[in-house]
Design a protein around this nucleic acid. Structure first.
Length: 169
DNA sequence: TCAGTTATTCATG
DNA sequence: CATGAATAACTGA
């Protein structure tokens, strides 16, 4: 498991890579905790890992400006349960700039009554931003929740043009 | 196992 | 707008 620090205009994200690909993405934390992982010496990183890292930073920067990433590293979502993986797959099919409701998502994965469980699965999404759990809203148009804080959810949606500045609660 | 906990939704007063 | 019920899955003990 390799940990990388991804610097963006919005702060330094943290990426966790497993042997299978990007396994986790964390928002910049208030508590900087800078000296976390000594940047491994360049030559130590396998070419594959370096490529994944590059792909991740690029994708992240694009996503943060509201554009659909042109390429993604392989995503390692193996840790989730079967149900969670179904939800996360469905999330990845929501185009940038569009939104769905928790109910619609439940419908799509074939568990129309598991609305609430879908919310849970969204909250458990290990790769926010790139697996766009922020595009899921309540049926009444309310934001719902967001593990990193609703400010982030609004910001991401606004940058994709999916959240009218007027509506900022 | 099972009680407790949800990033839900709908029906009611 | 506030409650309460229905409902499915996850977590920790």
């Amino acid at each position: 498991m390799h940990i990388a620090r991804l610097s963006t205009p919005d702060g330094a994200f943290t990426a966790h890579f497993s042997a299978r690909g990007l396994a986790r993405l964390e928002f910049p934390s208030a508590r900087a905790a800078p000296a976390t992982e000594p940047l491994p010496s360049r030559p130590t990183l396998s070419p594959a890992l370096r490529k994944w890292q590059t792909l991740t930073v690029q994708a992240l920067r694009e996503a943060l400006t509201g554009r659909a990433p042109r390429g993604l590293p392989p995503l390692d979502l193996a840790e989730g349960t079967e149900f969670q993986r179904r939800v996360w797959s469905a999330l990845r099919r929501i185009p940038s700039g569009q939104t769905r409701t928790y109910a619609q998502l439940a419908e799509v994965i074939g568990a129309p009554k598991a609305v609430r469980a879908v919310g849970n699965a969204c909250g458990a999404n290990p790769i926010p931003v790139l697996v766009p759990c922020h595009r899921v809203l309540g049926s009444d148009g309310r934001l719902g929740g967001f593990s990193a804080g609703l400010a982030w959810k609004r910001r991401l949606l606004a940058r994709e043009g999916a959240w009218p500045a007027e509506l900022w609660e």
